[in-house]
Design a protein around this nucleic acid. Structure first.
Length: 473
RNA sequence: GGCGCUAUCGUCUAAGGGUUAGGACGGAGCCCUCUCAAGGCUCAAAUACGGGUUCGAAUCCCGUUAGCGCUACCA
């Protein structure tokens, strides 16, 4: 059974690319009956913040996807260190006493790639131990094989066969001069210890994988399977960054814009993956059932946003699809919460509340529409638009609408069919087109010229309010 | 600079030797209609470039170009 992990480093909010990586890990774990692990890669004490950690959890909580085990790397540093020294003891790593500044100077890209300091790589164990004992600072470097034609390879589940000459890999660091493990060291030691079977992550790690394989092998552990995901990029082709692209890169932006998590997950899944059957509107369970790395493509996906349209239109479209089709019982609580925050006194009765939501939801795009365009359906504080006023100001409109109200008031029947009958009768008796009263009703009852069918509007607004609004004309 | 990855409509993508290069979003138009949506129909819109291989290439190979990634004692 596969064991997969999502390993964010808490240096910012939950990035949409990270969210997608989480989702793909989750999809695979759940599809294969595996284990989903959340590992916080918080080894960089300089940049980690508690706030960032919270925002990652906040984002994941909103997405509503779960995990089975959780670890924090910072609590496992001894394990990483032990692993590093194990590699050293096997002769596969060595101490490099070169000061950091000197190393930096020596690395001149124009001169070609830097691989290692020969003197340090060749230092005898005795000399190395002696200098270390004397307190001289060092970094522990991996001794990358230097025989002619040594290749490191693996088969990526998405990018297929990958191979690299060892001579194109520098002797990378395992332990810093302060004794703390580097990312490569910590990550691999943990993956081995936690028995990760599949590493599913962004393609930005594809090149790093060669180093990781070297570490896994040096530790004698099984080398996990790898699946790299194409990256999410901005319309200008650069990678998504908060500094450059602003809030579009944070998942909370979409939550705040009124997305239902189901829709946003759906959108993210479609970036770099497809079910091969042209289906795009999918529930997470369907994606899970259809998921395979075969369906993941290899080129980066552009998130389509601009100044004028900060939200990808396809994401918006998916949101409308989910909004109008998801079980009302699932949608209603979210709308309820929104109403409370907006200070709208919605009906307390849940069945009644759901009825209203169900009637109006099919023309809304985002949750916020319920508290904006939907005000009149839930409470009495709403504005009447100039267009609606025009409809009411048409000759006879107000009088006949009042008359309609009186007739409805005198009847116990408030069904849509009955309302329609009465309305058409009033129109006919007075020699006006039904449209005058139909559009007038909508204007009178909601203050708007757009919305559900006029008779449904009566039901949605409710008898008491509807009659009051007609009477008040 | 070195190494690696990638390249189909504006965007997400399908087609892994033979298709009028398909679908979706977005755009335009028509139909439906009590409004607005939805829905149905139609239209515009793509194989980066150059060479091969082949009877035949979006698909395979090579090169060019472009983008991205790695090249840190960051992750």
């Amino acid at each position: 059974m596969p064991r997969v992990r999502f390993a964010p480093s808490p240096t910012g909010f939950l990035h949409i690319g990270s969210a997608r990586t989480f989702i793909f890990n989750w999809l695979y774990a759940r599809k294969e009956n595996g284990t989903m692990i959340l590992r916080i890669d918080d080894t960089d004490v300089e940049r980690n913040t508690e706030a960032s950690m919270q925002s990652i959890f906040e984002g994941l909580r909103w997405l509503g996807l779960d995990w089975d085990e959780q670890y924090a790397q910072s609590e496992r540093i001894e394990l990483h260190r032990k692993a590093a020294w194990e590699i050293f003891e096997k002769g596969l790593a060595y101490r490099d006493f070169t000061p950091m500044e000197k190393t930096e100077e020596e690395r001149d890209p124009a001169e070609g790639p830097w691989l290692f300091h020969a003197e340090m790589r060749n230092l005898s164990r005795e000399e190395s131990d002696r200098r270390a004992a004397a307190g001289e600072p060092f970094v522990l470097r991996f001794r990358v094989p230097r025989e002619q034609n040594h290749w490191v390879g693996f088969k990526d589940l998405v990018y297929r066969k990958q191979a690299k000459k060892a001579d194109d890999i520098e002797d990378f660091a395992l332990l810093r001069s302060n004794g703390l493990p580097t990312y490569h060291m910590a990550s691999c030691a943990d993956d081995l210890d936690i028995r990760i079977s599949h590493i599913i992550r962004g393609q930005d790690h594809l090149s790093n994988t060669f180093k990781h394989i070297l570490i896994f092998e040096a530790l004698g552990g099984p080398v996990p399977e790898f699946a790299h995901l194409p990256l999410l990029i901005a319309p200008d082709g650069s990678k998504l960054s908060k500094r450059k692209h602003g809030p579009v890169v944070s998942v909370t932006t979409y939550r705040d814009a009124g997305f239902v998590a189901e829709a946003y997950i759906n959108f993210l899944c479609l970036l770099g993956w497809n079910p091969k059957n042209n289906q795009e509107f999918l529930q997470i369970d369907e994606v899970r059932d259809k998921f395979s790395f075969e369906g993941v493509n290899r080129s980066n996906a552009t998130v389509n946003f601009s100044e004028e349209n900060p939200i990808d239109p396809k994401a918006l479209w998916l949101n409308t699809q989910h909004l109008r089709t998801m079980p009302v019982a699932r949608l209603a609580p979210r709308v309820r919460e929104l109403m409370e925050r907006a200070g709208i006194e919605a009906p307390a009765d849940e069945a009644r509340f759901e009825e209203i939501v169900d009637i109006i939801r099919s023309r809304y795009q985002v949750l916020g529409d319920f508290s904006e365009k939907g005000r009149a359906y839930f409470g009495d504080s709403y504005e009447t638009t100039p267009e609606a006023l025009e409809n009411l100001d048409k000759p006879q409109a107000r009088d006949l609408l009042k008359e309609l109200g009186r007739r409805l008031a005198s009847s116990g029947d408030f069904s849509e069919t009955h309302i329609e009958e009465v309305l058409r009768a009033v129109a006919e008796e007075n020699g006006v087109k039904a449209g005058l009263l139909i559009n007038g009703s909508r204007a009178a009852l909601t203050g708007q010229t757009v919305g559900p069918g006029a008779f449904a509007v009566f039901t949605a607004v409710g008898r008491e309010r509807a009659l009051a609004r007609l009477a008040a004309l």
